[in-house]
């Protein structure tokens, strides 16, 4: 029986791509990137006349591989090119036009998982007053801060330049200057995990105002309770724009001492968010728990400023709580 090769793809997960062979056993087969190269790393499985090769890394689309049996070339396998939709930036946080001079973080959200290790080449901050790039404004990290699903990247403005009196701050100054306009640009060519790069430039213009050196307080946060029996959202409002990532991971909701699962939706301007429940709201007392690590745009959290002077007092609470009632209809 002639050896037949068939490429099988899993459209959901490119890493599970496999080569399938019929009419042979796996024992003496090896796949090679080039005729003389070492065998490609992966798992060979044989069962009922079908042999599967599952490579550790995805094979390269459009490349010709070499199959050997008993170390002799038996055939060339040309992998097809699969068209993927190019990734795109769907949102940049902070989602505001005006930022404090001591802005600490930026989040870039994509519509699909992205390849890591490209942030340094793909993102630029341009000083619109001079037209020049601010080359050392954003902290370069070899281990980039990606979300588990690799679709959200966290970028830090260089904290050494933000913190007053540190050497980078004294030498290079704050990364952003009050009164100036900046353009954050995400350039095309940033590959997604499926290898297809972004094709559009995404940009956001910011106007810089004075540095924020005030601790946020949950006393100023407003909760608009939802209507009992509905799945309408709970509305949480802040007096200032807050850090999307820090606040999202700091919130917890309980009603009658039971955890309430929800989906968060940040509103434009980062001054409010909606908490959509999975099930209709029940009547009773609820608590919004906020971890003290919740931050504003300048990295000031509920207990301390980002560059707090050690002589100044800091909050000691680990958690802050806002209590509210979901009242029965007609009350």
């Amino acid at each position: 029986m002639p050896l037949q090769a068939q490429v099988t793809y899993d459209s959901l997960n490119s890493s599970s791509k496999a080569l399938q062979f019929k009419g042979t056993n796996s024992g003496d087969l090896s796949l090679h990137f080039s005729p003389e190269s070492v065998p490609v790393a992966g798992y060979w499985h044989g069962n009922a006349g079908i042999t599967l090769f599952v490579p550790t890394f995805p094979l390269k689309e459009g490349h010709v591989y070499y199959l050997k049996k008993d170390d002799k070339l038996v055939r060339r396998i040309s992998l097809p090119v699969v068209r993927h939709s190019p990734p795109r930036v769907v949102r940049i946080y902070p989602d505001v036009d005006t930022i404090p001079a001591n802005l600490l973080k930026i989040y870039v959200l994509f519509d699909q998982p992205m390849a890591t290790g490209h942030a340094g080449d793909q993102i630029r901050l341009i000083d619109l007053n001079t037209g020049k790039e601010e080359p050392e404004a954003i902290l370069q990290l070899e281990q980039e801060l990606w979300s588990y699903s690799n679709d959200t990247l966290t970028l830090w403005f260089d904290p050494g330049r933000i913190k007053r009196d540190l050497i980078p701050n004294e030498e290079l100054g704050n990364p952003l200057t009050e009164g100036k306009e900046y353009l954050l640009e995400v350039y095309p060519g940033w590959p997604g995990q499926n290898g297809t790069p972004t094709i559009a430039t995404t940009s956001r213009k910011f106007y810089v105002t004075e540095a924020d050196r005030t601790r946020p307080s949950t006393d100023d946060w407003q909760v608009t309770p939802p209507v009992v029996g509905t799945t309408g959202a709970l509305f949480l409002r802040f007096p200032e724009a807050m850090d999307m990532g820090a606040v999202t991971s700091s919130l917890r909701l309980t009603c009658e001492d039971t955890e309430v699962p929800y989906r968060l939706e940040w509103l434009q301007g980062d001054k409010g968010l909606l908490m959509h429940p999975e099930r209709p709201w029940q009547e009773g007392g609820c608590k919004l728990h906020i971890d003290a690590k919740a931050e504003d745009l300048a990295g000031n959290n509920l207990n301390r400023l980002f560059d707090q002077d050690v002589e100044e007092a800091t909050g000691k609470q680990e958690e802050y709580v806002i209590e509210f009632e979901i009242a029965a209809e007609g009350e």
Binding site: S34, V40, A41, P55, F57, P58, L59, K60, Y65, G117
Partner: peptide, 15 residues
């Protein structure tokens, strides 16, 4: 390293 993994160097990073 990329050849061993069946791909090209631009597809991998040494962590």
């Amino acid at each position: 390293l990329a050849e061993l993994m069946g791909t090209t160097a631009d597809k991998i990073t040494i962590q």
